[in-house]
């Protein structure tokens, strides 16, 4: 693998895992968020080589087969998406948040999720979905 290969390109072009999206390409929008050792990172700014030997989780690995997680179901019931391009990044980010902090405070949710931009929903549906998923696990 060439040293200049980005993790996002490795996932999408070499492995065909196109659930990870490329939005801004400069680390701002969050569409390319994946988990490396359970921590969210910007895969468009990470060399694939930097992820060698580490555990990578993409949107494709969040659901258990066809069984959606409580968070994914909440995105549907709360209207947490419209066009869907930011959704994989939103779900991956929020999954990491809820794994670290099962019942995050409102400020913690907003701070954690502010790195995932959405141009459709106005964010309220996304925040409702994260809150609903946290409550569902109570």
């Amino acid at each position: 693998m060439p040293a200049e290969r980005l993790l996002s390109d490795l996932l999408r072009d070499d492995l065909g895992l196109t659930g990870t999206k490329i939005g801004c390409g400069v680390g701002v929008c969050g569409a390319c968020t994946v988990l490396v050792d359970d921590v969210p990172v910007t895969s468009c700014l990470l060399l694939a080589a930097q992820a060698e030997g580490r555990s990578i989780r993409t949107i494709e690995g969040i659901a258990d087969g066809d069984r959606l997680t409580a968070l994914q179901r909440a995105f549907i019931t709360e209207g947490g998406f419209q066009c869907g391009i930011c959704t994989p990044g939103q779900i991956v980010s929020a999954t990491a948040l809820l794994e670290r902090s099962a019942h995050p405070a409102e400020g913690e949710i907003r701070d954690w999720m502010k790195g995932n931009l959405c141009r459709c929903t106005g964010y309220y549906g996304i925040l409702r979905a994260v809150r609903a998923a946290a409550e569902a696990s109570a």
Partner: peptide, 12 residues
Amino acid sequence: FGTVATVRIRAQ
């Protein structure tokens, strides 16, 4: 440290 960029950039 907590105000740097976003959580993804802070994690990386």
